[in-house]
């Protein structure tokens, strides 16, 4: 057990989620011949890019000690704006979509910062309210894109690799660098790990929270635009439940809800785990419902394993 602990916890060890990813990858490549084909693997990347992009931002917000439940609604609004405003101008539509996400993030961040209220409450309100805004804007109608450049973009490839997958991987790399290399990234850890010490050290808590909420808003909106381009349309219910999938992916990736701990590489693993599971079970013709159950079971198992590994039984008081 000790060696296992060391393996999981050591400075340079492989994150446990990646072991899982590799395991299911091998499993499915034995179960289905098609699984290992280039087409399917790029397909997985495209399928995961939506949740994946949001999860990048969510990782920062959660390391910061917050949470954002409004990402699904933000995604939906951005998608509707991106399609709905195309008649006026494509550039305007995309700018408005991305801008709306950042604005909503800024509003969430501002409220959390200024009131100190649990981000859970604040973003829960936003989740309801923004969905209302979508319905208000769309009149409960789905929008279809008449601009083929827009819908072609979602299906385009560079060489054999879909553009969406490239965007996702590029963003992952950038966010990894932001989190590990920049002052903002490091301070995000500090604020989540020990807010009081951070204040004492002169770190401006609110500013970092704001920035992270804006980042997650931006990524949710970007995911919305890309998803709309994939589908060539936007429905008012688009993005519903995405917050749950995103949080699941981030938690699977090892980021702690209490803040101060997490990584983009872990999140990438979490996102891929979900994507591979969905894809692989789909190939094996398991009904989609089972994925939900298995996902829930995995999430709980991760928690239990984490608890067991981190519990020094004799030194702790029994509470």
């Amino acid at each position: 057990m000790t060696s296992l602990k060391g393996f999981f916890r050591g400075k340079t060890s492989i994150q446990p989620i990646w072991i899982f990813v590799i395991a299911i990858f091998i499993f499915f490549s034995f179960m289905s011949e098609y699984f290992l084909s280039l087409g399917n693997i790029t397909n997985i990347l495209v399928q995961t890019s939506t949740i994946g992009l949001i999860a990048l931002g969510m990782t920062l917000v959660m390391i910061n000690g917050n949470i954002d439940l409004s990402v699904g609604a933000t995604l939906g609004l951005a998608a509707s704006l991106a399609v709905g405003l195309q008649e006026i101008s494509m550039t305007l539509a995309i700018l408005a979509a991305l801008g709306s996400g950042m604005l909503l993030g800024a509003i969430n961040g501002l409220i959390v910062w200024k009131t100190g209220v649990n981000a859970f409450i604040v973003t829960l309100g936003a989740m309801l309210g923004v969905r209302g805004l979508i319905f208000l804007y769309t009149g409960e109608e789905s929008f279809y894109s008449m601009n083929f450049a827009f819908s072609d973009f979602g299906a385009s490839t560079i060489g054999p690799i879909p553009v969406l997958a490239i965007i996702f991987l590029l963003c992952t790399l950038v966010m990894h660098l932001v989190l590990t290399r920049t002052g903002h990234g490091r301070n995000t850890f500090a604020v989540g790990g020990n807010p009081e010490a951070s204040i004492d050290a002169g770190i401006r808590l609110g500013r970092h929270m704001m920035i992270n909420f804006i980042i997650v808003g931006f990524f949710a909106a970007l995911a919305g635009v890309l998803l709309a381009s994939q589908m060539g349309a936007a429905t008012p219910n688009l993005g519903r439940d995405y917050e749950l999938w995103t949080i699941t992916a981030v938690v699977l990736g090892g980021t702690k809800l209490t803040g101060g701990f997490g990584s983009i590489t872990g999140t990438l693993g979490g996102v891929l785990a979900i994507g591979i599971l969905r894809n692989g079970m789909n190939l094996m013709q398991v009904p989609a419902f089972y994925v939900l159950v298995i996902l829930g079971a995995i999430l709980i198992s991760v928690l239990i394993i984490d608890k067991k590994l981190n519990a020094p039984s004799t030194k702790e008081v029994r509470i």
Binding site: L244, L257, F289, V293, G296, A297, L299, I300, L303, I304
Partner: peptide
Amino acid sequence: FLRLNSLIVTLAMLSAIQGLVLI
């Protein structure tokens, strides 16, 4: 009894139970 984080556990249960209903 296992003292797991309630937010994540019930989030996982949300997904698992929905799956059970569909099954």
